[in-house]
């Protein structure tokens, strides 16, 4: 039995029309259409296109949730086992659409892939969530792209875990995947060290990351008039941890009103942090979130006022992607509220 595959293409490759048809709503046709015929040939009977989703590029980009839902519904309807999208070459909106299709299918647990030119904007947006193979910048490369995509799709369908990007030829997704090596880490380390000493080629298991650098803002001019907010990664939460912020690898943050509280006390606040000894933070949560000191400064007129709400999460093995997103959200909210400066406390 051949594996059943759903193929996603745009209005142009679906034979509906060019740019003037880019707003066309999606339709599902049984069997292969356009480049799907070449796929069927390249899949050599081991897999075949069961249905084709044809959608206008503008429509897809403007209705991502709807199209993603259509993809999963179509997969279920045809009992398909994989999805292939494109190839999109250097068509920007088509690249976005193909990335959306392939990553939605992968998120639903389906082997899936697409292909596009290295400068297609869809690549940066979707490479983490989907396997994307390289193509030339225009459709003249169809003859090379389709067999490569078909071969990789069959590999995914066979249940084989793909190797790294360099070996397999897809664009590196930048996603770390655990694996069991034949040797323990210490043996791998000494082998790598001996190669490094001898000047031989060796392959690091992890390329060191490149970090964002944030340029500090100029100081607050008139502190005595300024509204100051407290934000912490030290995990201070109301007693009972109402938002269930996890002890490590937090998945959320909380916003908590302190109203006119002068002092954080152990009967009302605690830490949710699992990365440090909680004893002293629980005894006096001001040690991590210094409400008491800021109230004193407010009284003395050193600062205008302490903002009525503080934000808190647990910074302990927290994914940088989450931290960045939350930082942007919290920053925007505080700015809207007229907060001029934030004291960030960590642990």
């Amino acid at each position: 039995m051949a594996y059943k595959v759903i193929h996603y293409i745009n209005q142009f490759f679906g034979g509906i029309g060019g740019e003037e048809m880019a707003d066309r709503r999606p339709e599902v046709r049984g069997g292969a259409v356009g480049p799907g015929l070449a796929f069927n040939k390249a899949l050599g009977g081991q897999a075949e296109i069961a249905a084709t989703i044809i959608c206008g590029d503008n429509y897809c980009v403007g209705h991502q949730e709807e199209v993603a839902r259509l993809i999963t519904d179509t997969v279920a309807q045809y009992q398909a086992e994989a999805l292939v999208a494109g190839p999109a070459f250097n068509a920007g909106r088509y690249g976005m659409a193909c990335g959306l299709a392939a990553s939605s299918a992968e998120a639903a647990g389906l082997p899936s892939l697409t292909a596009m030119y290295r400068e297609n904007p869809g690549l940066e947006v979707y490479k983490a969530g989907a396997y994307i193979l390289p193509t030339t910048d225009n459709a003249r490369g169809m003859g090379q792209a389709v067999p490569a995509m078909a071969a990789f799709l069959l590999k995914l369908l066979s249940g084989q875990k793909p190797g790294d990007a360099g070996t397999e030829g897809y664009f590196e997704r930048g996603v770390r995947v655990n694996t069991f090596y034949p040797e323990v880490g210490a043996e791998r380390a000494v082998t790598m060290l001996l190669k490094k000493i001898k000047g031989q080629d060796f392959k690091t298991e992890y390329r060191m990351p490149v970090f964002d650098r944030v340029t500090p803002r100029p100081g607050v001019r008139n502190l005595a008039q300024a509204t100051i907010a407290l934000v912490t990664s030290g995990g201070i939460v109301p007693k009972g941890n109402p938002d269930h912020i996890a002890a490590s690898s937090a998945r959320n943050y909380g916003a908590y009103e302190i109203g006119d509280l002068m002092d954080l006390t152990s009967d009302q606040f605690q830490t949710a942090h699992g990365g440090y000894d909680q004893t002293y933070a629980n005894q006096d949560p001001d040690r991590v979130l210094p409400v008491d000191v800021l109230r004193q400064m407010e009284k003395e007129g050193k600062i205008g006022r302490l903002y009525h709400t503080y934000y808190s999460t647990v910074g302990n093995g927290t994914a940088v992607a989450n931290a960045r997103k939350w930082g942007e959200e919290i920053g925007a909210r505080l700015k809207n509220e007229g907060v001029e400066a934030v004291i960030l406390t960590s642990t």
């Binding site: 793909p162 790294d164 090596y181 880490g185 298991e205 992890y206 390329r207």
Partner: peptide
């Protein structure tokens, strides 16, 4: 490096 577990980039 007590274990065989490691990771690679896809």
């Amino acid at each position: 490096g007590f274990n065989k577990l490691g990771a690679y980039t896809i």
